[in-house]
C-alpha cells in the first residue's frame, strides 16, 4: 500500500545570485511497511529530503502525498498536526528538551495533541519499558548516556503511533555496539509493521533495508 509519494520535487536555495538545488527533481514511492535506507555522499541532499518528507521544510516545486493527501500547499498549523500525528523523528543529536525528564520528553508529543495526562504518562512508561529504560524514566537528558538518549528519542517518536519514522543518522553519534542496539530496536519496529526511512553512511546497515535510495547531487537512484 502506497504511503508516501514524491513527484518531481525540488528544493532550491538562493544564496544571492546563485541558486543551489539541494533536491533536484526527485520522484519516489514508499509503501507501508518499507524499511528504506537513504544513502549518498555528504552534501547530496539526504537531510534536505528527510526534512521535506517530515514537513519541517517546504519544497520549492513538485508535489508530495502522504496517505494520498497532497501536503505541498498546506498551512503551517496543518503541517504541525501532520508532524505530530503521522511522523516520528529520530535525530542524530537526539534533540531532547533539557528541562524535561525522560518520561516527560516521551509524553510531550501527546501534550500537543491534547491527550489527558494519565493516558500520556501510562503510554510513555510503556514505551520507555519497551526501549529498555524502565529504570531511567525520571532522569534528565544530561543524566543519560548517548545511547539512552536515543532510546528516549525513539520512544518519543512512537508515542502518537505515527505512520512513518524518519531517522537521520540515528547512530552517527554513538559507538558501534550502542549503534547496533539502536538499529535492533528499529528493525524490531519495522517487523511490527512501522515504515522507516533511515539516513546512513554505514553500508552495513543498508543490508537491513528492503529498499535503498542513493542520492547524488540532489537526484535519486533507487535499488531494491
Amino acid at each position: 500500500m502506497e504511503l508516501l509519494k514524491l513527484e518531481n520535487v525540488y528544493k532550491i536555495y538562493s544564496l544571492g545570485e546563485e541558486n543551489i538545488a539541494a533536491i533536484n527533481g526527485i520522484s519516489l514511492l514508499i509503501n507501508k511497511g518499507d524499511f528504506v535506507a537513504l544513502i549518498g555522499p555528504s552534501g547530496s541532499g539526504k537531510s534536505t529530503a528527510m526534512n521535506l518528507i517530515g514537513c519541517l521544510d517546504i519544497a520549492s516545486k513538485g508535489n508530495m502525498y502522504l496517505n494520498g493527501l497532497n501536503i505541498q500547499n498546506l498551512p503551517e498549523s496543518n503541517l504541525a498536526q501532520i508532524r505530530g500525528k503521522k511522523i516520528g523523528f529520530i535525530f542524530q543529536t537526539f534533540n531532547l528538551i533539557p528541562s524535561l525528564d525522560a518520561l516527560e520528553n516521551v509524553a510531550l508529543p501527546m501534550t500537543f495533541q491534547n491527550v489527558p495526562r494519565p493516558i500520556r504518562i501510562k503510554r510513555a512508561k510503556e514505551l520507555l519499558k519497551q526501549v529498555g529504560l524502565a529504570d531511567r524514566i525520571y532522569h534528565l537528558p544530561n543524566q543519560l548516556s548517548g545511547g539512552q538518549k536515543q532510546r528516549v528519542a525513539i520512544a518519543r517518536s512512537l508515542i502518537n503511533d505515527p505512520d512513518i519514522i524518519l531517522a537521520d543518522e540515528p547512530t552517527g553519534n554513538l559507538d558501534t555496539k550502542t549503534g547496533d542496539e539502536i538499529m535492533n530496536i528499529l528493525v524490531d519496529l519495522n517487523k511490527k509493521g512501522k515504515t522507516i526511512i533511515l539516513v546512513t553512511h554505514n553500508h552495513e546497515l543498508t543490508k537491513l533495508a528492503n529498499k535503498i535510495i542513493t542520492l547524488k547531487d540532489g537526484k535519486a537512484m533507487e535499488a531494491q
Binding site: G54, L56, E76, S77, A80, Q81, R83, G84, K85, F89, N95, L96, I97, P98, L108, P109, F112, Q113, R156, N160
Partner: peptide
C-alpha cells in the same frame, strides 16, 4: 530556538 524547533518537530503549533 532549538528547543522551539524540537517542539515544532513533534507537533507543536505556533499558538502552543
Amino acid at each position: 530556538t532549538k528547543e522551539i524547533g524540537i517542539m515544532k518537530a513533534i507537533g507543536a503549533q505556533n499558538k502552543d
